[in-house]
């Protein structure tokens, strides 16, 4: 039983970081209806930003954290301007967006490898939270795991508050419901997109730093970010609560697979889950079903 709860806690902690990543995919999808695979690259850059702010510039942790998030937000916005905006203006089909996103993702990943100062090596974050776990009865919780959970939870709550209760949030919702109509109603859709990419990028930066602290930083963390994308699909692409729930569930399922079967299958289970979800309930857990107008 202890093992069960221990796994559950670990799963939720990982899942909450997935959630930070997944909402980025969902935000973009909800407005632009395509899977922004460059988001993974932004997350990776976030991890590197954090690492270099801490080690090279010796920023204190909160400042490094914030700077990494801001830099990632700017990076996400640059990608939007360079790789998507021209397509948007041309009303290109969604596929061109996906390919362009893939191009951006290939670019980012290899840029890191190609720059001699970074290179393909694994980098370990300096220790911020000591390894001494906090014990509650039989359960041991790493300080880092707790921090990961708390920081993610706070970010997500703020995000959902912004979406539900602020003017800009309402505009985002209206745009995601119907981009053409809201443009006609006077919503500045370009501004909405800027906001979306900044928010997604900001969260990506935070997720990157958390991820880097937990594991290490290396150019191919795309495998992990792909899993957060799967979580977004699992929850229902375009739905924020869906992305969060999907991520936490994926985190739990993964840790249980690793704990009770074999850690070898941890990555595989995500993809099997993806296909299963698409077959059984393609709109995901929280996605909406629509009948196309003809």
């Amino acid at each position: 039983m202890t093992q069960f709860f221990q796994q559950l806690i670990n799963g939720i902690s990982i899942g909450s970081v997935y959630a930070l990543m997944a909402v980025g995919y969902s935000l973009v999808y909800s407005i632009m209806n395509f899977s922004n695979f460059a988001h993974g690259g932004v997350i990776m850059f976030g991890a590197y930003f954090g690492f270099f702010f801490l080690t090279l510039l010796r920023f204190p942790f909160p400042l490094a954290f914030l700077s990494a998030a801001i830099c990632s937000a700017i990076l996400a916005l640059i990608i939007e301007r360079v790789a998507y905006k021209p397509l948007r203006e041309r009303k290109a089909p969604f596929l061109y967006f996906i390919i362009s996103a893939m191009g951006a993702s290939i670019f980012l990943e290899n840029l890191v490898i190609a720059i001699p100062a970074i290179g393909p090596t694994f980098r370990t974050y300096p220790e911020i939270f000591n390894k001494q776990p906090i014990k509650i009865g039989e359960l041991a919780m790493g300080k880092l795991d707790i921090a990961m959970f708390l920081i993610s939870a706070i970010c997500l709550i703020v995000l959902i508050y912004i979406i539900d209760h602020t003017k800009i949030g309402k505009a985002i919702q209206a745009t995601s419901y119907n981009i053409k109509a809201s443009a006609l109603m006077g919503v500045n859709t370009d501004f909405i997109l800027v906001t979306i990419f900044l928010m997604g990028g900001f969260l990506a930066g935070i997720a990157g730093v958390l991820f880097g602290m937990k594991y290490t930083v290396y150019p191919q963390i795309g495998i992990i970010t792909n899993k957060s994308f799967i979580a977004a699909v699992f929850g229902g692409l375009g739905s924020l609560p869906g992305a969060v729930i999907g991520s936490v569930l994926l985190g739990i399922i993964e840790t249980f697979t690793a704990g009770y079967f074999s850690s070898q299958y941890r990555d595989l289970i995500a993809f099997v889950l993806l296909i299963t979800v698409l077959v059984v309930r393609p709109m995901g857990l929280m996605g909406k079903v629509t009948e196309d107008k003809a």
Binding site: G103, I113, A114
Partner: peptide, 20 residues
């Protein structure tokens, strides 16, 4: 070597936005 794929990624974006 390593810069190859960097240019490749850029080229992909360029193709998408310029001669789709």
């Amino acid at each position: 070597s390593s810069w190859r794929l960097v240019f490749y990624g850029l080229a992909v974006i360029f193709i998408m936005i310029s001669r789709p």
